[in-house]
Design a protein around this nucleic acid. Structure first.
Lengths: 226, 226
DNA sequence: GATTTTTCTTGATAAAAATCAATAAAACTA
DNA sequence: TAGTTTTATTGATTTTTATCAAGAAAAATC
């Protein structure tokens, strides 16, 4: 009866090291919320009172830049924690997260999380590890976006979407042109043009917002060579 | 006699929460090393056996990208820890650090650091905070480099160098053209041209590798508007 | 189902930025 | 100091990428 939150917290490796009591402390007053596509979950700049765990759906996590330009850092599927670098610093959200598909999320109190980090070293280390892996991704992203041409960036984004976001049970890639542009730091028109080139060369097929990769090896080659 | 390492560890806030015993455990077999300009301290991809604390000089921290292109993440002065996201993950260096000026650094054993993190919650939290602040900087960098034009990026870099790297006792900005290019993700030639424009408009003066900012407000304006 | 709104597409054009090449100036080395 | 290497500069050119505008298609709304 203790760990009744099977969908949510128990399956996340990062919570494995909690005692029953500790687990219950964050489980007690958490709440589950549903979001429709297009709804904002966290907004960059607001107070970070909670972190969430995605339990269903798909979320995009992005930076709001200058002049309504966004930069998508990643897409998140269940089971992912969405927190951010506000932890132990300014307790603000530094990212905006928005539901792309119908999404459910568990809200967990940040105060409770902090207590656990202070109480439980293994949990603290797991958090540190988690943050460091994100830093590694950010480093890759920095190089990707500043040193590769548009073709390489689109190829990279498609591979990412294929392997990590729409893999297995999630079916074909479904993404808006603007999101693909925000993921690759280019204009929407440029993204469209390159998508069309890839289609004309039979690397992919495109029907509406659905993209199917036909020639992953060649896409990989484009991704690597830039 | 315990905390004889006044130059190095004691002045770093992150070590404040250590007990004398804990402090001594990392102080015991640390070693201080000197580097000449151009010498590599850590190399991306190698095993992370130590972290360092810069005690003298100036270091550039960068990502080695594709085809000998580098991206400078930041410059580090005393007293800065240089570690990286290999901590608790793959224990490899994900950044390269190279001395720009004559530099001294204390090498601290990573195993010892890890023991301390496990022993001392406050230290673990300080680390978490430290990593999060870096993530915030990486986010800013991502937006800066993907959404701003070259003029804005050079202006931003000059302001950064002026306010955070060559402030106070460190004198005027001294930087190679290639480093300025690697800091702003553009070609060396482009960096040179924009520098010349800024000089022609009396925003800065340039003599060799020395840059003096004359019109910070206008540089700020360029930085903000992109 | 008609209308409105949003998203997508395409072409033309302009702007931004990289590359190439050749020289000049500095810094280093023997 | 002479020679060598590295770094900086400049102009010409090409490539890359964004912007603008107008129309088509799709999706949402009434």
């Amino acid at each position: 009866m203790m760990k009744h939150c099977g969908e949510c917290i128990t399956r996340l490796p990062i919570f494995n090291m909690l005692t029953d009591e500790q687990f219950e402390s964050i489980n007690y007053n958490r709440c589950k919320v549903k979001f429709r596509p297009g709804e904002t979950i966290f907004k960059q700049g607001t107070a970070m009172t909670h972190v969430i765990i995605i339990t269903e759906g798909l979320v995009k996590i992005y930076l709001e830049g200058t002049g309504s330009r966004n930069l998508i850092l990643r897409m998140a599927r269940p089971l992912t924690i969405i927190g951010g670098p506000g932890f132990f610093t300014d307790f603000k959200h530094h990212i905006t997260s928005m539901a792309i598909e119908e999404t459910s999320a568990c809200f967990i109190d940040v105060q409770k999380m902090m207590e656990l980090i202070k109480e439980n070293k293994d949990f603290a280390i797991a958090m540190l590890k988690w943050v460091n892996i994100h830093t590694q991704n950010n480093y890759l992203k920095l190089v990707e976006l500043t040193q590769k041409g548009m073709h390489g960036r689109i190829a990279g984004a498609l591979i990412y979407l294929n392997n990590e976001v729409f893999s297995g049970k999630y079916g074909d890639i479904r993404i808006h042109r603007q999101d693909l542009a925000d993921l690759t730091a280019m204009s929407k028109e440029s993204a469209i043009r390159i998508l069309k080139e890839f289609k004309d060369e039979n690397l992919i097929s495109v029907v509406g917002n659905t993209i199917i990769i036909h020639d992953l090896p060649r896409l990989n080659a484009i991704n690597i060579k830039g």
